[in-house]
Design a protein around this nucleic acid. Structure first.
Length: 208
DNA sequence: TCATTAACACGGG
DNA sequence: CCCGTGTTAATGA
């Protein structure tokens, strides 16, 4: 496990911390599409992403979803950090976007390390900052941008996260994540296709 | 003006 | 047939 950790975290953490993580952490592998965390669940350990990607969603009372942001390798979940210290329930839903590999760290350790490792403390603070920035960006998108821009950003993010220009989603799935209707997505996608931005297929589409 | 909802036709698997 | 897709008409914000 140590070598996998070093691959993505050696620039951030000192050797002793990496070794300690590999001692107390456990590897968890989840296939794409798995719901890792649901709203209302209690959080018992903190994930560090080794490989893959996770999407973070907010859900309303009716079960309607809204994509907040993606987590990639080297990231961690800021919501977990704010929740687990107080043994609170999760406010968000996390779904594996790709096949994902995580290191799970017991929550009492993450508290302890804030005192003992400066690099850990910085990592935690940086993570908070990064998540907050991403959240602000999505708020901007929702508040100020039109659906066509939101859709384009969504597609570009998806391409960046998955590392392939082929997006395997139906119009309905995209509509759910952007919290709109399929009619709108179909229409906007069609417009993007005529503008030569992408190519439409059944069950998938490809950015150009 | 633009999103939503419902409804319908088309076509591929 | 079922599902994803494209399109339209009605309604509302």
């Amino acid at each position: 496990m140590l070598t996998e950790l070093e691959l993505h975290y050696s620039y951030i953490f000192e050797k002793e911390l990496l070794e300690e993580i590999s001692r107390v952490g456990t590897i968890k592998e989840v296939p794409a599409g798995t719901t890792i965390m649901n709203i209302g669940q209690y959080i018992k350990s903190m994930p560090l992403l080794i490989d893959g990607a996770i999407k973070i969603l907010r859900e309303d009372d009716d079960g309607d979803e809204l994509l907040l942001y993606f987590l990639e390798k080297g990231d961690t979940c800021a919501m977990t950090m704010s929740c687990c210290t107080g043994n609170k329930k999760s406010e968000i839903k996390a779904v594996a976007e790709l096949d994902t590999k995580l290191v799970m760290i017991p929550i009492d350790k993450m508290d302890e390390w804030i005192g003992t490792y400066k690099s850990w403390r910085n990592f935690v603070l940086d993570s908070y900052h990064n998540r907050l920035m991403e959240l602000l960006e999505t708020v901007d998108n929702i508040a100020f941008k039109k659906m066509d821009e939101r859709l384009l950003k969504y597609l570009k993010d998806k391409v960046a996260v998955t590392g392939t220009k082929l997006i395997k989603s139906t119009h309905q799935e995209i509509a759910y994540e952007l919290h709109t209707s399929r009619v709108v997505i179909s229409r906007l996608l069609k417009k993007l296709e005529t503008n030569k931005v992408l190519v439409l297929n059944r069950n998938s589409l490809e950015l150009l």
